[in-house]
Design a protein around this nucleic acid. Structure first.
Length: 493
RNA sequence: GGCGUCAUGGCCGAGUGGCUAGGCAAAGGUCUGCAAAACCUUGUACAGCGGUUCGAAUCCGCUUGACGCCUCCA
């Protein structure tokens, strides 16, 4: 019996705008695709937030016993800079700017991306395919769409015929747009386009002579269009229809809309059962933007080397901060917010670290099974991590109460409590117990225990000058002493 | 201009047609040699204006404001 057979998940489906009971296509198996980064610059913090949300979702689904194939692509083929035919590939542009090979740019920023995600304790996806590794699949997909009559070739480029598609299908159903509205609101393009209609989008672009990234195709030496790679790779690894497709809110239109259109045009089926969109991350109440300077890189946030934040924050603190809001809400990144989360985070860690010191009684003063169920209920409700965290704090309070002798727990319940809180905090939220030192722990705690003992003696002798000196100077090097009923413990900040 | 999302206490941030979210901050108390930590107690919030309802902050309409997409962007 797997856990998922006892838990019923609800997911907010962008397609319907409602929370729906989640039912995978194949029982016990889940296919999940998330649009990955374009590796032409350092990974964006907002990007990290989105992937972190899906990392948590991936972790929870796995915890429930599902066999999850999680595919997150790397876009390394570059997207067009604009609609015009003179549009330059983003990656090519950067390469020229920096006088290096396109694939060198891709390599550098792919490594950066992985480094950042590792720092944040991400689980790797099951498959991380690259767009350049799937050119053949994309060409085959274009052929099929042309054969089905939904694309046309002009001067070596191939475009998706949105108007024709819309006659038999519903273009815009994900983003709730009507083609008529789009027609009336499309700006006039500068220069000439080969497209029949401005709403059409490229499946294949003929490469200009100076364009370095290019592949042969039946139509021209060129490169695939913006939206094609995700369709090709999701179909290849997850099948024509799969369970969950995620990404940032800003990808809803046109990117995801076009993915649906490509799938329906090629295969005749809508590819995804549950579309999930993570909301935006703001910095001090405003969208992050390189042009206005209102932006901070993940490594700058982690190092504290930036002008927005008063200090460096541990990766788990940032993770905790993000988990304290719902993935569907706009989240405002501020120094105050991070400071508040940091305090809460360490309070939670301190409580968890007290678990092994708790003494069991013959009676529990809370209903541990009800608490455990509440944790699952929170995550089952569209992965509501803020509610889960509220329950974790309830447990922290309970742990402290038991420690203080104001509450009690049976050894059986203590086991359930410890197991559950560890599972949700570390396995599912992906937090790391940073107050526990990995190496040198024994030596450090041996030394601090000695100081604690000396301080005890000083206090017994009423030599408070000495005892306070030990306490205060330890605090200065980041070691906080905590006097409790059972003696003194310490934590390292 | 079009489409969409959202407006919650000092701050952050959930949720809900009638019953405590939670965190941070604040105040009082317990403990302590004094502190810190921990625990206990306290705050009665839901943009404005109408409407539906026995009852709405929660549903509907309008107004105002913020944000996203419509052009690469998670």
């Amino acid at each position: 019996m797997q856990l998922y057979q006892q838990q019923q998940i609800k997911i907010h489906n962008s397609l319907t705008g409602k929370k729906e009971i989640f039912k995978p296509i194949n029982e016990g198996h889940i296919g999940m695709y998330v649009c990955g980064p374009t590796v032409y610059s350092n990974v964006h913090l907002g990007n990290v937030r989105t992937f972190m949300s899906f990392d948590m979702i991936f972790r929870y689904l796995k915890h429930l016993g599902y066999k999850v194939r999680y595919v997150r692509n790397i876009t390394d083929a570059g997207h067009l800079e604009n609609d015009a035919d003179t549009g330059e590939d983003k990656i090519t542009k950067k390469a020229r700017l920096e006088q290096i090979e396109p694939m060198e740019v891709v390599q550098r920023y792919t490594v950066d991306f992985h480094n950042i995600l590792n720092t944040f304790n991400f689980l790797p996806p099951s498959i991380e395919p690259t767009a350049t590794g799937h050119i053949i699949e994309q060409i085959e997909l274009i052929k099929t769409i042309i054969d089905n009559g939904f694309a046309y070739e002009v001067n070596g480029s191939v475009y998706f015929d949105v108007h024709k598609f819309n006659k038999s299908h519903e273009y815009g159903k994900l983003s709730k747009r009507k083609l008529d509205d789009l027609i009336h609101n499309t700006r006039a393009l500068d220069g000439q386009s080969d497209k029949k209609n401005p709403q059409d989008f490229a499946l294949w672009k003929k490469a200009e002579p100076q364009h370095i990234m290019r592949w042969p195709s039946p139509w021209s030496d060129g490169f695939p269009g913006w939206h094609l790679e995700c369709t090709a790779m999701s179909t290849k690894y997850l099948g024509e229809q799969f369970d969950i497709h995620g990404g940032g809110m800003d990808l809803k239109f046109p990117h995801h809309e076009c993915e649906i259109a490509q799938n329906e045009a090629a295969i005749g089926k809508s590819p995804v059962n549950y579309w999930m969109h993570a909301n935006m991350l703001e910095l001090n109440g405003q969208r992050m933007s390189k042009t206005t300077g209102n932006t901070v890189n993940p490594d700058e946030l982690l190092s504290g080397n930036n002008k927005f934040f008063s200090k460096a924050y541990a990766p788990s603190v940032i993770r905790f901060f993000i988990a304290q809001s719902s993935y569907r809400s706009v989240l405002d990144l501020t120094d105050e917010g991070l400071l508040a989360s940091e305090k809460g985070f360490f309070r939670l860690m301190d409580a968890i670290n007290l678990l092994e010191t708790l003494k069991a009684s013959d009676k529990s003063t809370i209903d541990i099974q009800a608490w455990k169920k509440a944790c699952y209920d929170a995550m089952n409700d569209d992965f509501n991590s803020p509610i889960l965290i509220a329950h974790l704090f309830d447990a922290a309070k309970y742990i402290n109460q038991v420690k203080e002798g104001q509450a009690s727990v049976t050894s059986e319940d203590l086991k359930v409590l410890a197991e559950t809180i560890n599972t949700f905090t570390f396995d599912i939220l992906g937090l790391e117990n940073v107050t526990k030192k990995e190496s040198g722990t024994d030596k450090l705690s041996g030394a601090v225990d000695l100081l604690i003992k000396l301080r005890q003696e000083a206090r017994a002798n009423k030599d408070f000058a000495l005892s306070d000196k030990i306490r205060d100077e330890l605090a200065e090097v980041g070691i906080q002493l905590k006097d409790g009923k059972e003696g003194t413990t310490f934590s390292v900040n």
